[in-house]
């Protein structure tokens, strides 16, 4: 019960419990039949939000995650089409993602540019590249390799459960541990909480932030890759506006907008809140375009509730 009150994550935890219960009652059996695809979608966006949370806790923003998700998965699919084999394609695409994160980080730190600006720029650059290459169509993974071991591992399904779910669970557990129990995690909180203090006490502030951007880009790219493995295609509009969903989820999940506080599992609960709403709307037969309205209201509403009832939903 402790998690439902007096923590930064409380509002998201409570929302998830109430929403899942409410929607199960309202929608009934269709809600349960839909659970595998809801869990899959939560896992995809959840992996992105974990990276976003690391960046936001470090006191920065990464607006490029949606475009990186699409761009890295597009490169992955192109490499598969070039027939270099799934594993080399996976590793090269992840290496590219790491490089993208490094560039975001180095520009933010070395040139002291606001990350909001740098990553907004690259949001356009990578989206532009995806649009330029796909030209409004979809790139598909060749039929003959769809059944291969690596693509099945990343995008397949066992016992009714998409593999994305245990993959995301593993990443969530790993980053929860890293953030709470390791020196790197402590440094992330330190640079986001007070960069001057961190610098004065010898924390390598720049390198910590660069690694945060690399984690964010690699996780966004990896989420894109497992999505492509599952859907066998990437298109011009893959993951558009995903950066906003990820940031909204991270803030709903209790991460401090200006850094220094929050958890990756809070961000994950934020994702579960938003996507439960999204799937609920679809299953209720409501126009999917209403989702943006609901997302916006949920973001402002839940953060407002936290402000109005600090005893219930904020740390003392």
């Amino acid at each position: 019960m402790r998690v439902l009150t007096a923590r930064r994550e409380s509002i998201a935890a409570l929302s998830v419990v109430l929403l899942f219960a409410l929607l199960a009652v309202l929608i009934g059996v269709a809600w349960f039949n839909n659970l595998p695809s809801l869990l899959r979608d939560i896992s995809w966006l959840g992996i992105v939000a974990i990276g976003q949370a690391v960046v936001i806790i470090s006191g920065e923003f990464d607006l490029s995650v949606g475009s990186v998700y699409a761009f890295v998965s597009m490169i992955f699919v192109m490499l598969l089409n070039a027939d270099i084999g799934p594993l080399p394609a996976l590793l090269l695409a992840l290496l590219l993602a790491a490089l993208i994160g490094y560039v975001n980080g180095i520009l933010t730190w070395r040139l002291q540019l606001p990350s909001l600006l740098v990553t907004l720029g690259f949001l356009f650059v990578y989206r532009g590249l995806v649009e330029y290459v796909t030209g409004g169509y979809a790139l598909v993974i060749p039929d003959e390799i769809r059944g291969s071991f690596w693509l099945q591992l990343l995008g397949g399904k066992s016992l009714g459960l998409h593999h994305a779910v245990p993959i995301c669970a593993f990443i969530l557990a790993a980053f929860t541990f890293v953030m709470a129990r390791t020196r790197f995690g402590s440094h992330i909180y330190a640079v986001g909480g007070d960069a001057t203090a961190a610098l004065a006490t010898g924390v390598p502030v720049g390198w910590v932030k660069i690694r945060a951007f690399m984690i964010s880009a690699v996780l966004a790219g990896f989420a894109g890759i497992i999505t492509a493995s599952n859907l066998s295609s990437v298109s011009t509009t893959t993951a558009t506006a995903m950066e906003f969903e990820a940031i909204a989820a991270t803030i709903i999940g209790g991460c401090a907008l200006l850094g220094g506080a929050g958890t990756v599992w809070g961000a994950f609960l934020g994702v579960a809140t938003l996507l439960a709403l999204k799937h609920g709307l679809i299953l209720q037969g409501i126009n999917i375009f209403a989702y943006q309205i609901v997302l916006g209201l949920a973001l402002v509403g839940l953060v407002a509730i936290r402000g109005v009832f600090p005893k219930m939903f904020a740390p003392h």
């Binding site: 402590s186 909480g193 203090a197 961190a198 006490t201 010898g202 924390v203 401090a256 220094g260």
Partner: peptide
């Protein structure tokens, strides 16, 4: 760093 625990601040860096 005000949001971090006392002991983490004591040993920061």
């Amino acid at each position: 760093a005000p949001l971090m625990p006392v002991s983490r601040n004591f040993f920061m860096g």
